[in-house]
Design a protein around this nucleic acid. Structure first.
Lengths: 223, 223
DNA sequence: CAGTTCCCTGAACACCCGTTCAATCCATCC
DNA sequence: GGATGGATTGAACGGGTGTTCAGGGAACTG
């Protein structure tokens, strides 16, 4: 993804859907790089390879664009993990994979997992912007639902203990959030491996399954 | 604290230390209210009851001021909780009190505990500003040390199981972080009470102590 | 009581950036 | 192939805001 498509040197009009998405993509990339506060319309235009005027042709205002871009980027992350996880057989494998994908920089094939940086931007914005606050709640509930769905599967198969799956999911989700922040901040005492281990341990504890040595091996891409 | 001091109508020069601190206080309040991105020098000046020019007389630039204000505010929170906790007898009580103080809005006497909002601002800024990144790491390590100190006390007294106190503290700190974010966001499914309960349960689990019914009663101010 | 130093003000400056808009380009259709 | 309409540009406008600065004024010093 994220190909600049050099061949569209100048002219080359696109249909609205394409441009809309292209601009959102460009915006998400710029926000990830420079942060929401330092993101200018001209940056997004440059990243998308168009003129600044065109950005405002597709979006009512900079503010609207930023809001849309944030939820759009989180959507992408959700869809990717969701697709990956559905493939796996056991609930324990699914949970493990979800944690793999949530630890910034744990899997080499996915860069630094900068989606977390976007999450923090969403949080800051949601504190004051009701629109963003609404979106955030939906996004966050989906994130927790992804975990509780796995838990329910594991309960049905007997891998996990019985109980309120949503109640089990909350601390696991929050723990991942809290640790991911530290890892993305490059905290010297909270490495990716340590985060992964801690998440697995607490999950095993809460859900009542045994940790096998293989669960704690770093950097495995899973089967 | 936070008295406007109406009587210093115009003249009334203050000594540098005072003004420095006053401006930091004012800045912290404005940032909490409006957010880092929407904080203008004129806002801070107004809040402090001085002219915009004076702000730049005491601080080299707006950026420096903001950076200082953020760590200053976090310092205040640390000092307050630290002072409160030291009074208590048992480690379990200390831990419980720490959690009380960390749950936004749990204790009526402390407003909404908006220090958490400042934390998020620190995180966003630390992603790009090395100076802030350094401060954040110190602040965060102190936050975790506060927890591991309590754990060590409890281990010495036999209240908690033996083990690496720092390793125990990490998930507890991260869980508090992750849940506090949800609570401060006014997430409809993560109430202050639920956060409190979840933190106590995980702590009890990790540290191997039994939860008594009294530990789960809401809003108690402790002894 | 002059002189010096520091605190403080508020207006002016300069720059940055979101937004607007008239003009241009390019498909597509008649 | 001329006309129509949407897509695109880039320059210009305008508001907002960080920073500077010349000056006023209070306290302290000798």
């Amino acid at each position: 993804m994220f190909k600049p498509e050099d061949d569209m040197s100048s002219g080359a009009p696109k249909h609205m859907k394409d441009r809309h998405q292209e601009i959102l993509d460009a915006a998400a990339r710029v926000i990830t790089e420079r942060g929401l506060a330092e993101t200018r319309i001209s940056d997004i235009a440059e990243q998308a390879g168009v003129s600044p005027g065109l950005i405002l042709y597709y979006f009512d205002s900079k503010d609207r664009l930023l809001a849309e871009a944030l939820t759009y980027a989180n959507d992408q992350f959700y869809l990717r993990t969701s697709r990956e996880i559905r493939r796996l057989g056991s609930a324990k494998e699914q949970l493990r994979r979800l944690i793999d994908l949530s630890v910034p920089g744990y899997l080499p094939e996915y860069g630094r997992l900068d989606e977390w940086a976007l999450w923090i931007e969403v949080w800051v914005r949601a504190l004051r912007d009701p629109e963003t606050a609404k979106d955030r709640e939906v996004l966050d509930q989906r994130w927790r639902a992804q975990i509780s769905d796995i838990i329910r599967i594991g309960q049905a198969s007997g891998e996990f203990v019985a109980g309120d799956a949503d109640a089990f999911a909350l601390p696991i989700a929050a723990l991942i959030d809290g640790l991911a922040i530290q890892v993305i901040m490059n905290d010297s005492t909270v490495t990716a491996e340590r985060m992964h281990r801690s998440c697995m341990e607490v999950a095993a504890h809460v859900l009542g399954f045994a940790l096998e040595p293989a669960d704690l091996v770093g950097q495995s891409a899973g089967a």
